[in-house]
Amino acid sequence: MAAVLCGSLAGCASFQELTSSSTPLLGKSSTNDPSTEPSPSVSVSVSSSAAAEKPVRASGPLDTGSVVHRVKQGAFTVTLTYWTSDNAKLYTAGSNKTLNIAAHIEDTDGKQRVTVSTFQVTQDDGAARANVRTDNGKFDVTPPYPYNTVVTLPAATAGATALTLTVRMDLLVETAPEADTYYRSTALDSLTLPLVKDGATDD
């Protein structure tokens, strides 16, 4: 009986050892459980995504107030100067826009008479096209005389991101000094104005 009792006690002791030794194993297993690890922060990627989605306005030719274009017309050059007192960096589809345009002739001795018979400006916002200005007449631009005009642009289509202005000058050029006979020459130029999205503000 004693042997049996001792065996039972031994068995009990073995069971206790097994039970007590398994306790730290369970504790260690719970410590290494992946579900208890903290989740990585995603705030950086969210901020980067928001920054990437913010609309960026391209720089424009009138951001400094003025720009000069030169259009070669055979033996002479038509020089067009565009300028504005507006802040062109704030142009939106619906904002007021007033431009000054001056044209004069270069690379000629001025002995042959040159006149403007038509000066036309059209506006295209990608969705609509409009005739902004048309001058018909006989405007002398023989050097040193220039041609000047002021253009007020109408509101563009809502959501437009840029305006393209096309300038057309129909010129009558004397065939020879004092010949009083003329040939026609048409000078074409374009100016693209980027727009700020309506309602957009800088943070």
Rank of each mutant, 00 (worst) to 15 (best):
S39H: 01
P34W: 05
P154H: 08
P154R: 03
G199L: 06
S39D: 12
K54H: 03
R113F: 11
V141M: 12
V4T: 13
K28Y: 05
F76P: 03
E174Q: 10
T134D: 13
V167F: 09
A200F: 12
K28P: 00
A10Y: 06
A128G: 05
A52L: 14
T31G: 05
L195R: 11
S35D: 03
A103Y: 02
D198E: 15
S35E: 12
Q120Y: 05
V167N: 11
G159W: 07
P34H: 04
S8E: 12
T181P: 04
P40H: 03
T186V: 14
R168M: 14
D203H: 07
T36Y: 13
D198I: 00
V116F: 03
V132Y: 01
T134M: 06
C12N: 04
D135S: 12
T36M: 06
L191N: 11
S45M: 08
D140P: 11
D107S: 14
T175H: 01
A127S: 15
G94W: 00
T181A: 15
Y91T: 04
K97N: 04
H69Y: 07
E174R: 07
T23W: 10
T157I: 10
C12E: 10
L99N: 04
S8Q: 12
V44W: 04
L172E: 14
A103G: 13
G94Y: 00
Q123H: 11
P34V: 02
V150Y: 02
E53A: 15
T98C: 05
V67Y: 02
G27I: 12
S66N: 12
N87R: 04
P55S: 00
H104T: 10
P154E: 03
G74L: 03
G11M: 04
A58E: 06
L193H: 00
S45P: 00
N100T: 15
A200W: 09
T201H: 10
S35I: 08
S190H: 11
L18E: 03
A127N: 15
G137D: 10
L163S: 05
V150H: 05
N148K: 13
V196E: 02
